[in-house]
């Protein structure tokens, strides 16, 4: 993967130098280990900041919304699918983009690593599947594959969907993965158990909206949670309002969510918010055979009305 990093720098430098883009959106080292942060490079000399490793989980498509200048963006599979969605939804124009595609092998879940090491992480290096983690002064080695974010472990679209150039060979897509086992488990619960489950799931929420802000799909000028007339959702910590927020947010992502995991990664309380979007992803796949962000030619199924839309759920 270190090859990727050099290729990214090289490409970014070339693009900026030849002036074909005004800005390159990529990752640079963050202030904390395992916390790479988005960066916006406008000068060729700054490309050395760019990095690529297993800590680039943030969805960079989020930074493209309504940009007018010509931008190059480093995009792994899920970012590229959100770029597609962005183009379809008029958030950015294809011709204003230069997509530097990154065939992805999954991002590492910092919480999993922390739990495995049992202490504050001081440094991490990776080599193939081996993660060397320094925590509490001691170095431990972990399997990268075992530390993947859940959405990455279940990812079926690691390769970018659209790109202008690639930084490496396309990777083999994962096969034989059961993406919706967890959804089915919840679906099978009795109504009472389900109620308990969602009550517990959302109980820790502090309404910080980090999940929303990390999500490239959430770009409305005024989010429904902030509207006051009508006030769709109460502002406080009332559990009903919390649930309303999460349910409605999930519905707004139906047919558009790429399961990039940005929401879950951003949640300071560790809430598995993907549980809600995954359910809708499953339904949309079952009913419409649709996965978000794979084509520029079609709007998501919930954006269209067809008389023969599936309606077996109405009895």
């Amino acid at each position: 993967m270190s090859g990727y990093q050099d290729k990214i720098k090289e490409t970014a430098e070339r693009l900026l130098k030849e002036g074909s883009v005004e800005m390159v959106v990529g990752f640079r080292k963050g202030t904390l280990p395992m916390m790479n942060e988005p960066c916006f490079i406008r000068r060729p000399e700054d490309v050395r900041q760019l990095v690529w490793d297993s800590n680039c989980g943030i969805n960079l498509a989020n930074y493209l919304t309504d940009r007018k200048e010509k931008i190059a963006i480093v995009a792994k599979g899920c970012d590229s699918r959100n770029i597609v969605t962005h183009i379809v939804e008029n958030k950015i124009k294809r011709e204003k983009l230069h997509v530097i595609g990154v065939p992805c092998q999954g991002m590492v879940d910092k919480r999993k690593v922390a739990a495995a090491c049992g202490g504050d992480i001081e440094a991490v290096t990776e080599d193939g599947d081996v993660l060397s983690v320094t925590a509490g002064g001691a170095v431990q080695t972990l399997s990268r594959m075992e530390m993947l974010q859940e959405n990455c472990a279940l990812c079926a679209h690691r390769n970018p969907v659209i790109y202008d150039e690639l930084v490496g060979e396309l990777v083999a897509e994962q096969t034989g993965i059961d993406r919706f086992a967890e959804v089915r488990r919840v679906e099978a619960l009795s109504p009472q158990e389900k109620w308990r489950y969602f009550e517990d799931l959302l109980a820790p929420c502090v309404r910080c909206y980090a999940c929303r802000n990390a999500c490239p799909l959430c770009y409305c000028p005024t989010c429904f949670v902030e509207e006051s007339r009508p006030q769709w959702v109460g502002k406080g910590q009332n559990p009903i309002d919390i649930r309303t927020f999460h349910f409605l947010r999930a519905y707004h992502c139906a047919g558009r969510c790429t399961d990039c995991g940005a929401c879950e990664r951003a949640c300071p309380m560790g809430i598995k918010v993907r549980q809600l979007t995954s359910k809708l992803n499953k339904d949309v796949l079952d009913m419409f055979g649709w996965e978000a962000g794979l084509t520029l030619d079609q709007r998501p199924p919930l954006d269209t009305y067809k008389p023969n839309d599936p309606n077996d759920f109405i009895k």
């Binding site: 429904f224 309303t244 349910f247 409605l248 519905y251």
Partner: peptide, 10 residues
Amino acid sequence: SPKFFLSALN
């Protein structure tokens, strides 16, 4: 809108 029935229930 989903909010209508959520609101009615609420």
